[in-house]
Design a protein around this nucleic acid. Structure first.
Lengths: 177, 177, 177, 177
DNA sequence: GAATAAACGAGACGGTACGTCTTGTCTTAGC
DNA sequence: GCTAAGACAAGACGTACCGTCTCGTTTATTC
């Protein structure tokens, strides 16, 4: 059922998504979609929730810089190159209030999970005790997302690596406490 | 003319924006809107372009940390609290390809202007020679935008100040070169 | 439903007929009209078909001349004096191909029914065996319709009677075989 | 100028005729058309008037039956086979009151000219003195026009000849006085 | 095994927005 | 002074989508 929504989002984006087409693709009548989700908003919210519920664990490469690089590449890759599910879900959050709330939850969940990367670094002694995990992660993903989503700039691997290395160094220097 | 678009965007958001209502509000016939902008997309693109064309100069408080704080507060203020023009324009960029391109230009313009803050800091000797102005600005705005737009977290003044101060310190330490 | 179409045709003619007004008059939404008739043409065609489907029997006065007179008066009356449904339907046939086909059917049906008048005259011995019924009817209605519709000449009762009598005489003389 | 109107009428019929296209085809600006004809109706009326003004003389074959046959064939030929100028002008008369009046004049003129055929027959002694010329002509063209225009029946040459012969015979018998 | 509740397929409907197309009026220049 | 160029108001057209609804049918579930 949600497969159909995802497929439609990928094919036609959020603007091209239609209850009719979702219904037809999932072999179900349009009325049934309304009965179960009540709304296009609900449909979109559920699609975001599905993404949110899918299990995810942060990378573990052995070093903070490596983890941050891997993390950032994943984030960038998901938002780079237009017909992307992540971008479609982001667009969906502007069409449906419920989807927006769900998307906030998605990012909160992922951020909460991603701080483990910093925890591990701290337990390895790479960064000082009071280091703010969220600040570290946001210091990497924030600028990259702004580049990709708002500036429309393609971000290449070396950029990501460089940024991750600099953030790791700043964290090691105790500047992100 | 664009006043009407802006007003509609503020009142009803991008989803509630209608060619009919824009036309009526600006005292013009619907056909005229189509003649001049061809499309809802063109209308939105032009609204973004108008924002882009409005003059803007980065703050000048005398210190890098102060400038970055002022800059960041402006950015956060424009995207915090839902019925905001900036958010509506962002939403518009997901409805119209042309608006998206225009929005990228907007952010590029603003970023280009904002690096002057770092230039000034360098000429004052606050930061070393090779400091990357864009990296400095993005280090402040990126995480904040991610917080506000994606995480849905309200960002308060002390958060902004603290982040600006840390980025200024990192730049002074030559970590953003 | 078709009552509304007829009323609009009578009031404003075919040029003034609008899907919107038909819909409003029949207490139905515009979209429903499009769903059911697809087209203004379809609407007109159906109006003609309704006229075609309405039962009709030729007059029976006891004599061929009397029948032809009554028949002709009916035809003339339906096309004389501008705001006439028959004229509006004729106009409709120039706006919609489907309506034109339907109108042809209407006239064929009526002609087919009208020849009964001649059949009866034959069985009464008023006209010889091989008399062509259609030719008799057309000899009366054709010239009159040309007068009313093409020449724009008002046709009065005596004209009709005179013509009917002459045609009846010609038929009796075996000239319409 | 009127060439363009005629060409458009032939190509697209009255429904497809547009002031814009007429103007463009005649190499003139749309505003000029309005200045000179004021109205689409005026344009159509003028097209009909042009047809009316074109010289026409009835056929002269030497016999009444021959003349009537030739006359009828001309009339039928002008209205048979859909994309016909005569039919388009007829359709135009349903779109414009002025064109309708003009068309009535056209038919009156032609009828007035056509009675010469009967005059000649009378002077040749083919028909009695009091024969009604108009009645003779209408007896031929009326039924044929009803067949072609209203019944939608194709009319072939033998039909025309037969009818003309019968009418000539009736006239000779003094039945059309 | 029959009765009944719940979900479903099908499809009409009211309502809105979109974008296109004509018509007829008008203003501004140019020849 | 007529004309080209073209903007404009008005409004019909036909399409697409949304969300609601009714109606009949199929499942389950329960007695």
């Amino acid at each position: 059922m949600l497969r159909a929504v995802r497929a439609e989002l990928l094919e036609s984006g959020v603007e091209g998504l239609t209850v009719d087409r979702v219904a037809q693709r999932s072999g179900v009548h349009r009325a049934t979609v309304y009965r179960r989700w009540g709304d296009v908003g609900g449909l979109l919210a559920d699609a975001v929730r599905a993404a949110r519920d899918s299990a995810w664990t942060p990378p573990d490469t052995g070093s903070l810089a490596g983890d941050l690089t891997a993390l950032a590449e994943e984030v960038v890759g998901a938002h780079q190159g237009r017909p992307t599910l992540a971008v479609a879900l982001l667009a969906a959050s502007f069409r449906s209030e419920a989807a927006a709330t769900e998307l906030n939850g998605f990012w909160s969940d992922r951020l909460g999970a991603a701080v483990a990367v910093v925890e591990r670094a701290r337990s390895r002694g790479e960064v000082p005790e009071g280091t703010d995990g969220e600040a570290v992660v946001l210091a990497v993903t924030g600028p990259l997302l702004q580049s990709v989503l708002l500036l429309g700039r393609p971000v290449a691997e070396p950029d990501v690596e460089g940024l991750a290395a600099r953030v790791a160094a700043a964290a090691a220097a105790g500047l992100l406490g």
